[in-house]
Design a protein around this nucleic acid. Structure first.
Length: 720
DNA sequence: GGTCCAACATTTTTT
DNA sequence: ATGTTGGACC
């Protein structure tokens, strides 16, 4: 392919971004503006003209995005040696290669959430604080935020003010000690250590700068400070850093993403060229207008002109449903209609704010025999039996990994009781040696019952067998060896949950697939474990699987579907209640809504339920304020009733102003059990919920919180 | 060491 | 309402 062919069919700004040669480049790309196309064509163009594929590094946030990008670049014939990777896997790989320069052993374990939890419990104990007051989950979150901001344990210990922060600092220090002792890094450490390494080791930095002469970071608006330092460090010498992103799609501030990274790019890199991609090639004008109307309500925002030349499509629909059952049944019915009219299941996606909302939808889809896939890739790897198998392999790969050792030492049972385990760990601490080293001679550990000694010996020979299998064979062989010889198979075979055995077999298949991807024997157990540790929810989604896709709004970023349903558009759900509480950010919720809406190509349906059941109780809801922010025109309203097991809905296309879709609106007549009838004068969304100023006929103006009052909307004919 | 029951919380979003 | 965890009991 000739370089010029790569420019065919591109708009002027797209073309400019593709041909931009050396120097920093910021591509501000609105939703559906062909960003991925620009990135892939740019990489191919660079590889064709001024560099080689092996000097190009593209960093994304999910494996799925990395995989897709690599495939698309391959199709453009970019050449061999290109690196497409997520931040985390790039860091993990680099640290395995170069970490020894910073005292990190190459076989380090990567601790997932459950592992972190265990390590944190140990740390809290070590810091002599109670799990009651310092819950592991909260501490992990706090420490994660600190790490994302590159505040190390030592730094924080120095600056911590007040009793609580000083306690957190002690826990942070202890936690890092626990990880260090186990030769383990958590997700955040991968970034932190890489950023530190780049900062402290100029020689390595130069080496990497020379290897990766063109660095490309996607979704730059979601980078945290550590990721920012990594991107900068990788491009320090050549400044060939191309970042793409959209401030309006920043949805990870809660996880430490720093919007300033993208907003201040031009100040960071004064020579930066800035290109705006504002033409949308994805959605209908109705969808784009609706999304634009919502996002315009954000104050902290740079104005951006979104436009599309796409032909008009059906109106954006807002469906008010009686309750969550009516809602999910409506969605299922609409999907059926779509398919009966010749549409495909994989045209359709359903988004929700919280994972808990998927349950109803799933039930309705199953009921209607609609095939669906759900973005829950990590769930598989969190299954007990899968975690067990992996823990054996992790112990073999990294003998210092005590969290994993503790998991498997007596699973399946080999007569090593809780007390024996405690004595083993106590003895290890006392002698300053790792527990697994003591297991070489279990009879030397004081007060261990004979049976336990025997169990420890059999565990050690099992581990030796796994190590042997891992050394000589493919990863598949090692995994299979664990499943076959650990006793886990029979342990789970007669358990009530028959899927356990299937899952272990599936894990073997996953390893086999990995082996096939590494036919030259360049794969390794450690590498596979890394890959497995870094899978994300969306990674499991196959866009062409012939099924409806279910996912959270967060997971939806970067994807697109012909028909999108967004459910649960309710006050407290989207925007989520938590965004109202301390340091919450309602604007981030609005961006989340914007991201969801702009995933839709042809059709967008937003639903909400008047009654929603959560935790066993049904509660009256209020429509999301974002619905009120939709434009006045081009919206179709649907009311979904629940009538005698027959789901029916009425339509009022464009006949009434949008506000009629909601029972709570200015001018609405209402009845209060104590104050009688009145009219809503004003509505306001506050920290405590939706607040209405009502002018009652009998007593005058009152301020009422909708969710706490038994206010009832009155139909026209009911008014006195 | 395994099973069963009761108490408990339910995590917004995730690499 | 439901799933998880911890403790009591076998």
């Amino acid at each position: 392919m000739e370089p010029d062919e790569l420019l065919e069919g591109l708009t002027e700004p797209q073309r400019e971004a593709v041909v931009h040669g050396d120097g920093p480049l910021l591509v501000l790309a609105g939703p559906g503006s062909g960003k991925t196309r620009v990135i892939t064509h740019r990489a191919a163009y660079l590889a064709r003209t001024i560099t080689h594929a092996r000097h190009i590094l593209a960093i994304t946030f999910t494996n799925k995005a990395a995989r897709e990008m690599a495939e698309r670049m391959e199709r453009l014939d970019v050449g061999p040696g290109l690196t497409c990777s997520t931040f985390h896997s790039f860091c993990a790989r680099s640290l395995r290669m170069y970490g020894d320069r910073a005292g990190i052993k190459p076989n380090f374990s990567i601790f997932d959430e459950a592992d972190q939890q265990q390590a944190m419990k140990a740390a809290i104990r070590q810091a002599e604080l109670s799990e009651e007051n310092f819950t592991p989950a909260r501490m992990l979150h706090k420490i994660s935020r600190l790490k994302n901001a590159m505040i190390l344990a030592e730094d924080f210990a120095q600056q911590a003010q007040g009793w609580e922060d000083r306690a957190v600092a002690r826990i942070y220090l202890a936690y890092q000690q626990v990880l260090k002792a186990q030769n383990a890094l958590d997700f955040d450490d991968l970034l932190v250590e890489m950023a530190l390494l780049l900062g402290r080791d100029p020689e390595l930095r130069d080496h990497l700068n020379d290897r990766y002469r063109y660095v490309l970071v996607d979704e730059y608006q979601d980078t945290n400070h550590a990721q920012y330092l990594i991107a900068r460090g990788l491009a320090l010498n050549h400044e060939n850093l191309c970042v793409t992103g959209d401030p309006d799609q920043s949805i990870y501030a809660w996880r430490g993403a720093n919007l300033q990274n993208i907003l201040q790019f031009e100040e960071d890199f004064p020579k930066a060229k800035v290109i705006r991609l504002e033409e949308n090639f994805r959605s209908t004008p109705q969808i784009l207008d609706a999304a634009d109307a919502v996002i315009k309500h954000n104050r902290k925002r740079k104005r951006k002109a979104l436009f599309t030349c796409n032909p008009a499509g059906p109106p954006v629909r807002v469906a008010r449903c009686e309750d969550q059952h009516a809602e999910s049944a409506f969605v299922a019915r609409e999907i059926k209609k779509h398919v009966n009219a010749g549409g495909r299941y994989d045209d359709v996606a359903i988004f929700y704010r919280t994972n808990a909302l998927s349950r109803n939808i799933e039930a309705a889809l199953r009921n209607a025999t609609i095939p669906y896939q759900i973005a829950r890739g990590v769930a598989f790897f969190q299954r007990t039996e899968v975690k067990d198998v992996l823990a054996y392999l992790k112990v073999v790969a990294n003998p210092l990994d005590t969290v994993s050792l503790e998991r498997i030492i007596n699973t399946p049972a080999r007569k090593i009781g809780k007390t024996s385990v405690e004595r083993l760990f106590a003895c290890a601490r006392q002698r300053g040696r790792p527990p697994q080293a003591l297991l070489e001679r279990p009879e030397d550990i004081p007060d261990i019952p004979k049976a336990a000694v025997k169990g420890m010996k059999s565990l050690m020979s099992l581990l030796a067998g796994i190590a042997e299998a891992a050394e000589h064979g493919a990863v598949r062989d090692a995994v299979e060896y664990v499943v076959m010889n650990s006793g886990l198979l029979s342990h789970h075979h007669d358990s009530a949950d028959s899927s356990a055995v299937e899952n272990m077999n599936e894990l073997i298949s996953a390893a086999a697939q990995y082996d096939r991807q590494h036919p030259d024997g360049d794969g390794s157990l450690t590498d596979w474990l890394t890959q497995v540790a870094l899978v994300s929810d969306v990674d499991a989604i196959d866009p062409e699987v012939g099924a409806v896709t279910l996912m959270t709004l967060h997971a939806a970023k970067g994807l697109e579907f012909n028909h999108v349903f967004m459910v649960g558009l309710e006050d407290g759900l989207l925007p989520h209640q938590r965004s109202r509480e301390e340091n919450g950010d309602i604007e981030e919720e609005r961006r989340l809504c914007f991201v969801g809406m702009t995933r839709a190509r042809r059709a967008l349906t937003m639903t909400y339920a008047k009654w929603r059941e959560s935790r066993g109780i049904s509660q009256r809801t209020t429509g999301s304020q974002f619905l009120h922010e939709l434009p006045r025109e081009g919206i179709e309203q649907i009311t979904v009733h629940d009538e005698e097991e027959e789901w029916r809905y009425d339509r009022e296309v464009d006949e009434a102003p949008l506000d009629d879709a909601y029972e709570w609106r200015e001018g609405q007549m209402v009845r209060h059990p104590d104050y009688g009838t009145g009219q809503i004068q004003a509505l306001e969304w506050t920290g405590r919920g939706t607040r209405a100023r009502v002018r009652f006929k009998a007593i005058g103006d009152m301020t009422i919180y909708l969710q706490y009052s038994n206010l009832e909307p009155l139909e026209f004919e009911e008014m006195d």
